[in-house]
Design a binder for these strands. Structure first.
Lengths: 214, 214
DNA sequence: ACGTACATGTTACTAGCGGTAACCCGAGTC
DNA sequence: GACTCGGGTTACCGCTAGTAACATGTACGT
């Protein structure tokens, strides 16, 4: 029948798709998030329409590309979160894993945080949501789930866990972004400072004596 | 001499500039962050080259546009931060101010978080930094300053304050973005949850009894 | 052996973008 | 009147995302 044939074709198509993704990866790594479809096609040794046949449009390609890296990053984060250690150590390990990842491959990081460029979505107006970076959303939800199933937060725990998940991920992201740009301290110091923040040192700190304006 | 003349011209130029910015504002509010220069020029009743004479290029216009809103938002945040109340109240007021702002004018918010689109900067490669949203950086630095001059953090306080400033801003931003998209709870609840997080409830929470994998 | 269906690939194009060069015109000045 | 000069326009360039139409190889049924 055509079933065997179809699987064959599908396999070949999948191989091609993976090759194209790897080419795209190389180009994005070199040219940043604004890599053009032409450039990607050239890198892959073919021409544009093929890319469009495989991925629909640019955002399709970018989504596929982003998902690979996102999956990889999420896997290593999960490993750090699930390690058998006490809470503080796990939090620090997770922060460090994330920061090490963005430090090791900043171009990938840059791309992952930016894939929502010239989408020109059909609707004009009110959606407002989902413009944000999918990676952040996924990390937030993931962390929320871990928090909720590990911690005893009393009533409303699910909602609280989700707020915290997204909040902590945002904290990590913004601090990491700033740190990557300015490099004001070592990674270990950054991790420690952020963990201290989460551990309530902000609330525990004393007022400055003789502060500005008495 | 020409000094009076120059001021006259400058005044007129500034007026035009403000008019153009208001037109751009309207278009961005309507079309989102990918509003085209053509559209903005049309809204202002003129043609493209004038925009370019005034603002250099698109990122120049967007920067000017963003600064107005950024300044306004930062002013109200400063007010909340400087209110005469205890720390927890001030933190909650600041969070609430920010969230109320993005809730009231989501399109503006969306624009402010997105202005780094098709810049096609000359350099190819390594800068990595400064791709991030200027508003977030400014808020982070501002908050860092407040923290550092108000709190007694011991040695290394300046760096710690900066990490916390950017981290807290990122937390606020990510949580706000997620909340704006899903609206899972009221603003007040969100504020309370985030403040709880900053107050160390994460560290203080007990382990879930009979948790997964002991 | 022949036609046919189909995936794979190409060339050549459209529409729209950011950005610019060249020209145009009215107002003030010597 | 000639002359500059600020504000404005038309017409263009090079680039992008995306597409239509055409070419080619290859397995299949009859």
């Amino acid at each position: 029948m055509d079933t065997t044939q179809r699987t064959d074709q599908q396999r070949s198509a999948d191989r091609r798709r993976r090759e194209l993704l790897e080419a795209a990866d190389r180009v994005v790594l070199r040219d940043g998030p604004q890599a053009s479809m032409n450039a990607i096609a050239a890198e892959a040794g073919i021409t544009k329409p093929i890319l469009y046949r495989h991925f629909g449009d640019k955002s399709g390609l970018y989504a596929a590309l982003a998902q690979r890296h996102t999956d990889a990053l999420l896997a290593s984060l999960r490993a750090a979160l699930d390690a058998p250690a006490d809470r503080r150590e796990r939090v620090e390990a997770t922060l460090d894993t994330y920061l090490a990842a963005i430090e090791a491959r900043p171009q990938v990081y840059r791309f992952l945080m930016h894939p929502a460029e010239g989408t020109q979505s059909s609707d004009q107006g009110f959606d407002v949501g989902q413009h944000s970076v999918p990676l952040l959303r996924r990390m937030g939800e993931e962390l929320a789930q871990v928090i909720e199933e590990r911690l005893d937060l009393g009533p409303g725990s699910q909602q609280l866990a989700r707020v915290w998940g997204h909040g902590i991920v945002g904290m990590m992201h913004a601090a990491g972004d700033w740190w990557l740009g300015e490099r004001p301290c070592s990674r270990a110091e950054l991790v420690r400072s952020l963990a201290d923040l989460l551990w309530g040192r902000l609330a525990a700190a004393g007022d400055r004596v003789g502060g500005p304006g008495f």
